[in-house]
Computed example of a mutant assay.
Amino acid sequence: MFNGTHQSQCDMQHPQEMMLWALNSPIPEFNSDGFPVFDEQTARMISVHLYQCGFRYMPGEQNRLQSVADDGSIVWTDNKPLNPENHKKNIENVVKAAKQQGNDELLNILAGKLAGLANDITAELDKN
């Protein structure tokens, strides 16, 4: 996690910080290993790009909340889960883009994450 980039510490009116808090920590669907997807400089550039594209912070629309665990790691909590069909479409879009880019590494990571998720769901169903 970058220093000082928890959601409560970012200026939502400042292009370099508006989305920095959301980009500074692991994205659960991609990397639950505790490391950010982007370095701070890249995340700031993406935040500015999103700002210039018209993205703005809307607290009432926030579906995923950020908090800090006792060990200092970022924890995301889905307080308004999205429609499961949207997850399927998002995964399909990521796979399609990775194939077009020839990004086999991302495809392997995604396949591993989905296989792990399938195993977890199967284990939960077996408990019942």
Rank of each mutant, 00 (worst) to 15 (best):
G60K: 01
Q13R: 15
W21F: 13
Q41N: 14
Q41P: 05
D11V: 10
Q7F: 15
N31A: 12
P59F: 04
S8T: 11
D33P: 00
C53M: 15
C53H: 11
G54N: 03
G34P: 00
P36E: 04
E40D: 11
T5F: 12
A22E: 11
L50N: 04
S25G: 15
C53W: 09
C10V: 11
G54C: 05
D33C: 07
G54Q: 01
V48Q: 07
R56E: 03
Y57T: 05
G54E: 01
M45A: 14
I46F: 06
M45V: 08
H6K: 13
H6F: 14
V37N: 01
E40P: 13
D39F: 04
W21M: 06
N3G: 06
P15Q: 10
Y57V: 14
M19R: 10
S25C: 15
C10F: 04
H6D: 13
D33M: 01
Q16F: 07
E29D: 14
E17I: 07
S47V: 00
G60V: 02
P59N: 05
Q13G: 11
M58P: 02
G34V: 00
E40S: 07
L20Q: 09
W21G: 00
H6R: 14
Y57M: 05
G54Y: 03
A22Q: 14
T5N: 12
G60H: 01
H49N: 10
M12C: 12
V37R: 03
T5R: 14
F55H: 06
H49D: 13
M18C: 10
S32P: 12
G34A: 11
E29I: 09
G4C: 08
F35H: 09
P36A: 02
Q16T: 12
G4Q: 10
R44P: 00
H49Y: 15
A43E: 04
P26M: 14
T5V: 13
R44N: 00
F30L: 15
P59A: 13
S8Q: 06
Y51G: 03
F38K: 01
F35Q: 08
F35L: 08
P59T: 07
G34I: 00
G4L: 07
M12K: 14
P59Y: 03
N24F: 05
R56V: 10
A22L: 14
Y51R: 02
H14F: 09
V48Y: 08
L50I: 12
Q16E: 14
A43T: 06
R44H: 03
G54D: 00
Q7A: 15
I46L: 08
G60I: 04
P28H: 00
Q16L: 10
I46R: 08
W21N: 01
S47R: 03
Q13W: 14
H6V: 12
I27V: 11
M58H: 08
Q41E: 10
E17D: 05
F38H: 01
N31S: 13
V37W: 02
H14R: 13
H14P: 01
V37D: 02
L23Y: 05
G34K: 00
H6P: 06
H6S: 05
C53D: 03
Q52D: 09
E29S: 12
Y51E: 02
M45S: 08
Q52L: 09
A43Q: 06
N31I: 03
P36H: 00
M45E: 13
M18K: 12
H14G: 06
S32R: 13
D33G: 12
S32V: 11
A43H: 08
I27F: 12
V48W: 08
Q9H: 09
W21D: 01
P59M: 07
E17K: 06
